[in-house]
């Protein structure tokens, strides 16, 4: 389990992440949503170990994050960045193989192939990474981080995704989140920063709604994805139709000219 307790992070004396507590359990997909500047990426970087929390504690499987060496931490948590640029002409497959770094090389090839087929990147494995489209690059990065956590172990593993679907078409967005939700069967806890509220509603088990560095709401989709919460956090009229018959929640923001007619900002 990944547990954060009252963590804070300051930039120029201003708390960007303010007293956030959360738990990530194996078999759960947690989505972080919130407006720009709410502290989503900073929270993810704190959890990943990039930033050191100014206050509070982060524990991976009961052990404080500061007590992990980079190599040991990499064995149980992988992070997919928002953007990745490569300076040198690496091939797609070489990029994915970097995910093996923390594992040692045994049976790496099989693993890489499996993950690349799953993420539909196997077809362009020999192309240069730099020549790919934005969405293809993201899938390659996803494949790389999946390699890191794919193999099953006794320990719970953690996958942190920072806007994994930002430059993908609809089908690939769903494919990525589907893969992420499938990982839940593998003793893996997934955390994703998501911009698309509908995607969060459709795939998340737990939703964390951030506003100005604080958790405004935390809980199941039904609890958090309610019109009044979303309107308060985003300061914009948002309509939510509850899901039924296995359909996900349907969340619709309304155009600005509609505001005065039917809805009020909470």
């Amino acid at each position: 389990m990944l547990e954060a307790k009252d963590i804070q992070y300051f930039i120029l004396g201003r708390p960007v992440v303010n007293k956030v507590s959360l738990k990530l359990k194996a078999g759960q997909l947690t989505a972080i949503v919130g407006p720009n500047g709410a502290g989503k990426s900073s929270l993810l970087k704190l959890l990943a170990g990039d930033y050191k929390a100014g206050a509070g504690a982060i524990n991976y499987n009961g052990k404080c994050i500061q007590n992990y060496r980079p190599k040991d931490l990499a064995k149980i948590r992988a992070v997919m960045p928002q953007h990745s640029q490569l300076t040198f002409p690496f091939k797609v497959k070489e990029v994915v193989e970097l995910g093996l770094l923390s594992l040692g090389l045994a049976h790496g090839e099989q693993l890489v192939m499996e993950v690349m087929k799953e993420t539909q990147t196997w077809a362009f494995r020999d192309r240069l990474y730099g020549a790919l489209s934005g969405g293809e690059k993201q899938r390659v990065q996803l494949a790389r981080v999946l390699v890191q956590v794919w193999a099953g172990t006794d320990q719970t593993k953690f996958l942190l995704l920072d806007e994994p679907t930002s430059s993908m078409d609809i089908a690939h967005q769903h494919q990525v989140l589907h893969i992420a939700s499938q990982l839940k069967r593998k003793n893996i806890a997934v955390l994703a920063v998501l911009h698309d509220l509908n995607m969060a509603a459709a795939y998340a088990d737990q939703v964390i709604l951030l506003k100005e560095g604080r958790i405004y709401q935390q809980g199941s989709v039904d609890e958090v994805m309610a019109s009044q919460h979303l309107e308060h956090v985003f300061e914009h009229p948002i309509m939510v139709r509850n899901g039924y018959d296995g359909m996900p929640h349907f969340i619709q923001s309304l155009p600005v000219y509609q505001q005065n007619r039917t809805y009020k900002i909470a």
Partner: peptide, 21 residues
């Protein structure tokens, strides 16, 4: 050499992959 391969993606990414940057 492996650390340098990882660094090609970025410093924080290399750290995420277990490199003592």
């Amino acid at each position: 050499y492996r650390a340098l391969n990882a660094l090609a993606i970025g410093e924080s990414e290399a750290y995420h992959m277990g490199v003592d940057v």
